[in-house]
Design a binder for these strands. Structure first.
Length: 270
DNA sequence: TCTTTATGTAAAC
DNA sequence: TTTACCTAAAGAA
């Protein structure tokens, strides 16, 4: 599920695997072929995550990747016969000649080689990364912005210009954990409740990076072997559930800015 | 095998 | 506010 945690996990793994090395780039699917040839054989300086975006720093330019809803990275392994044959949908194959492991990217919304000013434009429109180093120090500024507006808190939480990393699943779960109705205008949200929810967002995203999945239930619900013991809907309180995991009451599904929000009308208040 | 749906965003109305 | 993008998994038939 590509919300912020997924992106940071990819960055961490790919930095370990590929940063500082000359890398081979190709585009079996073809749509990235021209850009890929420009950086093919160049040293990858580092992979930088920013919210749900990834930047691959090369000397000729920066590759910008956004997974969107469908994008995925798949690990590939070199066997004695070489790298596996890519499926026709692979937009970007990135490998280091000396390494046994590489990645195949399919279905991204963005995979493009950018100039420095284009990268700067993206940075400018992306809010503080809740998994980034400035997350804790930015709480006051974010609270001021979200709570100084009539925009419903459920909409504000998803606005990547304010904070980045939260997606639809985290939104629903954060609001439930704060017992806050998504339709509440920012102005009517209790600042203390907001601060706790902000800290919770930072915490849950980190948990997501560690577990490789969005995991929002209490730690006691996770057995010794970890999240694998839980069915998908057991990792959530309300997200895409019929019944609230907390009180057992029916979960309500509403639309906010075209996306489904799930809430427990019994427990979540404005 | 076909249809539906998804974690996201930006362009089009 | 709606649509298009684009891929794969899951469910229906």
């Amino acid at each position: 599920m590509p919300e912020g945690h997924t992106i940071h996990r990819h960055a961490r793994f790919q930095n370990l695997l590929l940063s500082g090395k000359r890398t081979a780039s190709s585009s079996p699917q073809g749509r990235f072929a021209e850009d890929a040839s420009v950086i093919d054989g160049c040293k990858l300086q580092r992979v930088e995550p920013l919210g749900k975006h990834l930047f691959y720093h090369y000397r000729p330019g920066v590759v910008h990747v956004h997974l969107g809803m469908y994008g995925r990275f798949k690990k590939i392994r070199r066997a004695s016969g070489g790298w596996p044959e890519p499926t026709p949908a692979v937009r970007w194959r990135l490998t280091a000649p000396g390494s046994r492991v590489g990645v195949d990217l399919t279905g991204p919304t963005a995979c493009e080689l950018l100039e420095a000013d284009e990268v700067a434009a993206i940075r400018k429109r992306i809010g503080v990364d809740l998994l980034g180093p400035a997350a804790a120090a930015s709480r006051d500024a974010v609270r001021e912005r979200m709570l100084g507006s009539v925009t419903p808190i459920g909409v504000a939480l998803m606005d990547q210009r304010i904070t980045s990393g939260i997606g639809n699943a985290y939104r629903a779960e954060l609001l439930y954990r704060a017992r806050l109705d998504p339709r509440t205008p920012g102005r009517r949200v209790d600042p203390a409740v907001f601060d706790a929810m902000y800290d919770d967002a930072v915490y849950l995203l980190k948990v997501g990076v560690r577990h490789r999945h969005i995991l929002c239930v209490e730690p006691e619900a996770v057995g010794k072997r970890g999240w694998r013991e839980l069915d998908a809907d057991e990792r959530f309180w309300v997200y895409r559930r019929e019944a609230c995991r907390g009180c057992g009451g029916p979960v309500e599904e509403i639309k906010q800015a075209g996306r489904s929000v799930y809430l427990c009308p019994r427990e979540q208040r404005g």
